[in-house]
Design a protein around this nucleic acid. Structure first.
Length: 299
RNA sequence: GGUACCAUAGCUCAGUAGGUAGAGCAAUGGACUGAAAAUCCAUGUGUCCCUGGUUCGAUCCCAGGUGGUACCA
């Protein structure tokens, strides 16, 4: 019997959680979450982590599994998810992978290149240099270390430029040499299900969901983590806008408006990314039966 | 019913001594290989309420209409 990973993706707020639970229950299996923020156990409301009830309706993995102080990345996720897959496939023919973190999804489905994890001190040094001197000197460094990547990279995107320099310095090799651009073969089939609705409806759902978060106590949750606002895990929609409001950059109403706007923009960005992937079969989140039929047919 | 003011982008509004228009907010398109809910790039979307008049030319001036707001009855 062949093994199948059912990947359920879509923009934030579209209903991935409830669809995955239905699919997982139908195939009597478990869910691996691919969400770069729901992994943090401290964060609940602002990340729209599935409720207790939802978590009990199907077994979830990789939710609330880490602390906001932990380092985590797409590489760790690839390792963790593949390990979980091989464990789960011993008892199940189908495993569900769901989430909105585009790069995490691709890390599992296509794999990412072998690169060293960046030494923290090196990262801090480069960050300091960037803050002090701006992007230009780091750009020049990259031009010398890896002229090929220098010509390809978006030079204004400091994160990419810095990362490339980091890799060059860590490995002593040009970053572009380590980029293989190959898709890794997985020991299971992959079926990709995309959830979509008209843009307007997605936005309405998002706005409403933020209002619900506020009722659930979002402001209090964000206040609680204000001392950690510089952690990467807290540099995220729903938190960063309210931190800025607490800092007096604008009033609370504007902060809430920005949470909604940035959530909408995030959804748009996710759609841009996912639309490029021609393997995805798109469905309405209300068509669970069609989705299950499609999986039955293809698996 | 009368008088005054207003009508321009999805919203709030600016503007044009008459030469088909621009800000803020919102929005749209895109990039993406270990921080990715991150980071970065690009884009003005318009029956200037309607119908006539004056004019080479009207979103702008004039008349009437429609809608809104305020005040007076």
């Amino acid at each position: 019997m062949s093994k199948t990973l059912v990947v359920i993706i879509g923009p934030t707020g579209i209903g991935k959680t409830s669809t995955s639970i239905k699919v997982a229950n139908y195939f009597d299996t478990e869910i691996i979450s691919a969400d770069s923020r729901q992994i943090f156990k401290e964060l609940k409301i602002g990340t729209a982590t599935p409720s207790e009830e939802e978590l009990n309706a199907a077994k979830h993995h990789n939710i609330a599994s880490h602390s906001i102080h932990d380092y985590y990345s797409a590489w760790e996720f690839e390792q963790d998810a593949l390990k979980l897959c091989s464990e789960l496939f011993t008892n199940h023919d189908v495993v569900v992978l769901t989430g909105g973190s585009m790069m995490y999804i691709d890390a599992v489905c296509k794999g990412i290149d072998e690169l060293p994890t960046i030494d923290q001190e090196l990262r801090e040094n480069l960050k300091e240099q960037y803050d002090r001197e701006g992007i230009e000197t780091i750009q020049r460094q990259l031009k010398q270390l890896d002229p090929e990547f220098y010509d390809q990279v978006d030079l204004k995107n400091h994160k990419r430029v810095i990362h490339a320099v980091e890799i060059c310095l860590m490995t002593g090799k040009a970053y572009s040499l380590l980029r293989t651009n190959t898709v890794k073969k997985r020991p299971f089939n992959i079926i990709k299900i995309g959830l979509e609705l008209p843009r307007e409806e997605i936005y309405e759902r998002i706005n409403k969901r933020v209002d619900i978060m506020l009722e659930q106590g979002l402001i209090e949750e964000v206040k609680e983590f204000y001392p950690n606002k510089n952690l990467n895990s807290l540099n995220t929609v729903g938190y960063k806008e309210l931190f800025a409001a607490f800092d007096g950059e604008y009033d609370l109403d504007r902060g809430i408006e920005l949470v909604k706007r940035n959530s909408r923009r995030y959804a748009k960005k996710q759609l841009t990314w996912f639309k490029r992937d021609k393997e995805i079969q798109w469905f309405s989140p209300f068509d669970t039966d069609k989705i299950i039929n499609f999986i039955e047919l293809k698996k």
